[in-house]
């Protein structure tokens, strides 16, 4: 499901089936890494879009958690923890964070296996079909992680 009223309506009516939230973590910068920031944003948008399409009936793709790079990581972590408790209160059993920002890797022990870090690939010069193939090959690995988590909790 996407974060649009029509999907959320389905979510409200089928909560017992839709138990997983996906939160993209996307850095924003206007300094020398401005282009890299845009590249990550494109990649993570396509990647989470792919995951959403494969697993529409069980996940909700939330709006991106967007933050300025060079911001204090502890501050971001507190804010993300706030998101987490709200999302859990919203009825989700599983939460996955999807990011290309290496900054989060340090916090792997805090965020646990829900943190899915995947390096971004520049897609700017590619045809639509090529993009799709790249995104799919990366996305597939993530799909398995989702499935595994679900099976553990069966």
């Amino acid at each position: 499901m996407k974060w649009i009223p029509q999907d959320i309506e389905t979510f409200l009516n089928a909560k017992e089936y839709i138990d997983t939230a996906v939160i993209p973590l996307v850095p924003l910068s206007f300094e020398e890494d401005v282009k890299q920031s845009a590249e990550m944003s494109e990649f993570i948008t396509l990647l989470t879009g792919y995951i959403e399409r494969q697993f529409t009936g069980r996940i909700v793709l939330l709006p991106s958690f967007t933050y300025l790079t060079h911001k204090n990581m502890d501050f971001l972590l507190t804010e993300l923890t706030n998101w987490k408790s709200s999302v859990e209160q919203g009825g989700f059993k599983h939460i996955f964070y999807v990011t290309s920002d290496i900054g989060w890797k340090e916090y792997e022990d805090i965020l646990g296996p829900s943190l899915l870090w995947i390096p971004s690939i520049p897609l700017e010069k590619m045809e639509e079909m090529q993009k799709w193939i790249i995104v799919e090959s990366q996305g597939k690995q993530l799909l398995n992680l989702f499935s595994r988590k679900w099976r553990e909790n069966e």
Binding site: T10, A14, Y17, I18, R53, Q54, F55, T56, G57, R58
Partner: peptide, 8 residues
């Protein structure tokens, strides 16, 4: 597209 809730 799955006819339950739309997964692939």
């Amino acid at each position: 597209i799955c006819k339950h809730l739309g997964c692939t």
